[in-house]
């Protein structure tokens, strides 16, 4: 009979033009209530213009052990960054 309300992860768009950002979590029986709870818990100081809620159990994440194969290969691809290229000062901003 006793059943804890599921946990929801809360994402809030702080200002128009920005992405939603994870701000924390809370409990709610369903998604609709999670939105209302998020409004009451996480926007008390005028912090948001839009809210996403995602059931914590529905999130799929990378495992910490995969860090090497997943993220390290990009470390050596230095040519993807503008600082890789030397442009003479005379050319000005590029």
């Amino acid at each position: 009979m006793k059943k804890e309300w599921p946990l929801w992860e809360i994402f809030i768009r702080g200002q128009h033009g920005l992405s939603h950002r994870h701000v924390g979590s809370l409990h709610a029986p369903d998604a609709e209530t999670a939105i209302l709870n998020a409004r009451d818990v996480y926007t008390r100081r005028n912090e948001g213009v839009s809210i996403w809620v995602v059931k914590a159990a529905d999130i799929t994440a990378t495992a910490p052990g995969d860090k090497g194969p997943i993220f390290e290969p990009s470390e050596t691809k230095v040519y993807r960054h503008p600082t890789f290229y030397d442009i003479p000062d005379e050319i000005g901003h590029m």
């Binding site: 409990h27 009451d40 818990v41």
Partner: peptide, 11 residues
Amino acid sequence: PVLEEDIALAN
């Protein structure tokens, strides 16, 4: 009954 409700009632 639950923290989320406590906060909402205060609002």
